Simulated assay, not measured.
Amino acid sequence: MEIQGTEITRKRMKPAMEEKGLDGADSEIVEREVFQTDIAGSEEVELNINHILEKIERFTELVSELLESGKTIFKELVNEFEERLITIHKEQMEKWQEEIKDLRLLDASNEEANALMHNARFLLQNAHIDS
C-alpha cells in the first residue's frame, strides 16, 4: 500500500514538476525526496501503530490480570459467604432446638401442674361431697 501511495504521489508530482521546467535529473531528485519523505512518514506511522499495538497488548494483559484477580476475589468471597451462611444456619438451628427443648420442658411442667391441679380438684370435690 505504501508503494502504491508513493506512486500516486509521484504521478501527481510529475505534472507539477514539468510545469516548473525541471529536467529529468532534477525531477528524479525531487521524486527521491518525495519517496524518502513518504517512507519516513510511513516509518513514523508504523512507529505510531506499533506504539498503539503495544498499548493494546498492555491493556489486554491488564484486563486479563484484572479478570483473574476478580475471579480469585469472588472465589474468596463465595467461600467466606458460604462459611458465614452455614454458621448462621447452624446457630439458628441450635437456637430453635433450644427453644423446642424449653417448650417441651415447659409443657412437661405444665402437664405436671395440670395433673396436680386435677388431683387437688378431685380431692376438693370428694371432700366437699363428703361433708
Rank of each mutant, 00 (worst) to 15 (best):
K20R: 03
S69C: 01
E98D: 05
L47V: 08
F74H: 10
T37P: 00
Q4G: 00
D107L: 15
A40Y: 01
T72E: 13
L124M: 03
I8H: 08
G41P: 01
E19N: 04
R84Q: 05
E80I: 04
S109E: 09
V63T: 06
L123A: 14
L116K: 15
E111K: 15
D102Y: 12
E83Y: 01
V34P: 00
I86W: 00
D102I: 15
R121P: 00
F81E: 03
E83Q: 11
K55Y: 01
N48E: 07
F81I: 02
K95W: 00
E76H: 11
Q125Y: 08
E76V: 10
E7R: 14
A40G: 01
Q4M: 03
N119I: 11
E111L: 14
S27K: 10
S64T: 11
M1C: 01
A25K: 11
F81Y: 09
E111V: 06
E82R: 11
F35T: 13
K14M: 13
I49H: 05
A113Y: 04
V45W: 08
V63Y: 02
S69Q: 10
E112F: 07
L77T: 04
N126W: 05
L66R: 04
L123K: 13
F122I: 06
T37D: 05
E33V: 13
E44K: 08
N50I: 02
V45H: 04
E91C: 00
H89T: 07
E31T: 14
M13E: 02
R84T: 06
E68K: 03
W96T: 14
E68M: 03
E82F: 03
L123C: 11
L106T: 09
D38Y: 05
M93H: 08
R58P: 00
K11D: 11
E76P: 01
L66H: 04
N79W: 02
T37N: 07
L105N: 09
R84G: 01
E65C: 07
I39A: 07
L53E: 08
E28N: 12
